[in-house]
């Protein structure tokens, strides 16, 4: 039986998973909405990937990434838990060794990664504000009753591009409403919105970064051809959307899991984990005025992980053995 790698990326909006072979070809992949309950979506994802693989291969390594990477890592007993910046960079560097820039816009965050010779040398992530990310596009599509899949095509059909204020999503929305009330065509407004998103990205996240070709565009928003063409127009460069743009983070996690498990067995709990009962609980610690919110992950009645405390009183109380290695010391 062949040995394969599993990668899971649990973000704010969507949960992604892939199974890749040792040559990094995608054997199975799945994309679903997190819908506020990451544990449920991780289980659904495992079930779906297990169905696609149909017992044909052995998982030799499992990695998790995304904002719920720690939770996902505990649930599937991952070999490595890695942040999404490195995961995206690794996947991009693997498939496109000549890539120098990765633009990534997901559900609630956007980032830029600068690569040289396939390794990340610089990155930035949106800080104070999440204007112009996927969930805003979702919201606008819903408001205009347009399926999000058609959003980009409509932008391409625009005859002229209107200027939309893109600094703040609330103001962007009022601006869009105002322009519609002036009688401007929906296509033009959507094109203006795509421009505003790119302008905001260039002025905040990508500010001061050395953007060189080849440029990759990853993450959920890369599906939107309107945003892609707005990027091409602004950067005056071709922007490449990789075949697996939706699951690049998951692929990166799988590749990293492969590096991590070299010469040892995987800890992966198996696709059957989908049937084990997990629960998360949160409580406010009253040990000091910081009142940290501590999260507990419970597997069949047993607390297997805790995090969120600043002082380490709760998280360090548990034995280290049941937790995945979050960081490997040099």
């Amino acid at each position: 039986m062949s040995k394969v790698l599993l990668g899971i990326d649990v973000g704010s909006i969507s949960t992604k998973g892939v199974v890749i072979d040792p040559e990094f070809r995608v054997l199975a992949s799945s994309y679903l909405r997190t819908q506020g309950s990451p544990i449920k979506s991780i289980k659904l994802l495992l079930r779906e990937l297990g169905r696609q693989m149909d017992g044909k291969a052995v998982i030799a390594g499992a990695g998790t990434t995304g904002s719920a990477r720690r939770l996902a890592g505990v649930v599937v007993q991952a070999d490595i838990v890695k942040n999404e910046i490195i995961a995206h960079a690794v996947a991009a560097g693997q498939y496109y060794p000549e890539a120098c820039t990765v633009l990534e816009i997901g559900g609630q965050d956007s980032k830029i990664i600068i690569l040289r010779d396939g390794i990340p040398v610089d990155f930035a992530m949106n800080t104070v504000c999440a204007a112009g990310t996927g969930s805003f596009l979702d919201h606008q599509a819903a408001r205009l009753s347009i399926p999000i899949e058609q959003f980009g095509d409509m932008a391409l059909k625009a005859e002229s591009r209107v200027n939309i204020a893109g600094r703040c999503t609330v103001f962007a929305e009022s601006d869009m409403i105002h322009k519609a009330q002036l009688g401007i065509a929906t296509n033009d407004i959507i094109a203006g919105l795509c421009d505003a998103i790119v302008r905001n990205y260039m002025n905040t996240v990508a500010r001061g970064k050395d953007i060189r070709p080849k440029i990759l565009f990853q993450g959920g928003v890369a599906a939107n051809v309107g945003v892609r063409s707005a990027f091409e127009r602004t950067l005056e460069q071709k922007v490449v959307v990789p075949e697996h743009f939706l699951v690049m983070g998951a692929i990166g996690a799988a590749i990293l899991a492969g590096e991590e498990t070299e010469g040892r067995e995987s800890r992966f709990a198996g696709f059957e984990t989908a049937d084990v009962a997990f629960e998360t609980r949160a409580f406010e610690c009253d040990g000091c005025p910081n009142r940290c919110e501590v999260v507990e992950i419970v597997r069949e009645g047993e607390v297997i992980d805790r995090y969120g405390d600043r002082c380490g009183k709760w998280s360090e109380d548990l034995s280290k053995s049941s937790q995945p290695e979050t960081v490997s010391q040099t």
């Binding site: 890695k82 942040n83 910046i85 490195i86 990155f123 040099t330």
Partner: peptide
């Protein structure tokens, strides 16, 4: 997340 990514990048 940023610190972790930065340290990974340096490593």
């Amino acid at each position: 997340t940023r610190l972790e990514a930065f340290v990974d990048l340096l490593k």
